[in-house]
């Protein structure tokens, strides 16, 4: 027998599934994650498989998306590039969630106190250095590399999640059940972990999808400039930079890596929008990068 009332979470997710953004975004996101997982175990051709005879080859059965200036299979490089993007995105968002969110929660629980002010001013400072500038600073000292991109995007994410978590937690902390928990003798830490954190999880999950998309764009941008992922590790941004050299004679080379970035980011953005509408359309999120 069907229950008369569905549990709220199931009802919300059911509403989300009907949302076109949720469905299209979810499908594109699964495609990107699937491509990254597949590339970890298999690619149609080896990603370091240089083949002078296939140099800048047009799409064919052997190379469905063509071959690059070293004769490497573009489809294989795109799959491996997905792996790079997903890895950078997961670590950068993980840093934000793991470090930034607890800091924001702590700031909200100590609202108006020195800890809150210190965290607030630190996030202000981090926002003064968009990921490109932080990556520039790190690259100037240590040279370009994938770690630069991860650290630069991750530091920025820490500030984003701290600010979002603080704002959401302040709203939850003002609700009666939090006052009731304090009245029965719960400590501030217990209230934060048991009562406030679960109630801000929704906004953090939605923010995580947005920041994942921003991280993919930032990584591609930094690698395009030569400050991020270095050869031979494949990256969509680096592929695009290489393709620009051959743009006049082989314009298709510049199309596929950009399309991969756009579809990955589009998928995450749509998925985040759908998720937000399903969980709570009034959720406040930031879009910074």
């Amino acid at each position: 027998m069907r229950p008369l009332l569905r549990p709220p979470t199931r009802a919300r997710l059911a509403r989300g599934r009907r949302h076109p953004s949720f469905a299209i975004g979810g499908a594109l996101t699964i495609l990107m994650l699937g491509a990254a997982a597949l590339a970890a175990v298999w690619t149609p051709h080896p990603i370091d498989g240089v083949d002078p005879l296939a140099r800048l080859a047009a799409p064919s059965l052997a190379h469905p998306l063509g071959a690059d200036h070293f004769g490497r299979d573009v489809l294989s490089l795109i799959l491996a590039g997905a792996q790079t993007s997903v890895t950078v995105g997961l670590i950068a968002v993980g840093l934000g969630l793991g470090v930034g969110a607890p800091l924001g929660l702590a700031a909200a629980m100590r609202r108006g106190r020195p800890l809150d002010a210190a965290i607030g001013r630190t996030t202000d400072l981090i926002f003064a250095f968009p990921a490109v500038l932080t990556a520039v600073l790190i690259a100037a000292v240590y040279g370009p590399g994938a770690i630069n991109a991860i650290v630069a995007i991750g530091i920025f994410n820490i500030a984003v999640f701290a600010r979002v978590a603080r704002g959401a937690a302040i709203g939850v902390a003002a609700r009666p059940f939090v006052a009731a928990a304090a009245a029965i003798g719960r400590t501030r830490a217990q209230i934060a972990v048991i009562h406030v954190a679960p109630n801000i999880a929704g906004v953090l999950i939605v923010q995580a999808t947005i920041q994942f998309a921003v991280a993919i764009l930032a990584e591609a941008g930094l690698s395009y400039l030569g400050l991020g992922v270095q050869p031979p590790q494949p990256s969509w941004g680096k592929m695009l930079a290489d393709a620009q050299t051959y743009m006049f004679s082989h314009p298709l080379q510049a199309v596929f890596p950009g399309l991969a970035i756009m579809l990955a980011v589009l998928g995450l953005n749509l998925f985040g929008d759908g998720l937000r509408d399903a969980l709570d359309p009034r959720l406040k999120t930031l879009r910074l990068g």
Binding site: L217, A220, Y224, G237, A243, I261, M262, L266, N269
Partner: peptide, 22 residues
């Protein structure tokens, strides 16, 4: 708006070069 948010500006720049210059 969704496409504009997702398309990286450097790729859009390359496409503009392909269309209007090349």
């Amino acid at each position: 708006a969704q496409i504009g948010l997702a398309a990286p500006n450097f790729w859009f720049g390359v496409l503009l070069i392909l269309i209007f210059a090349v």
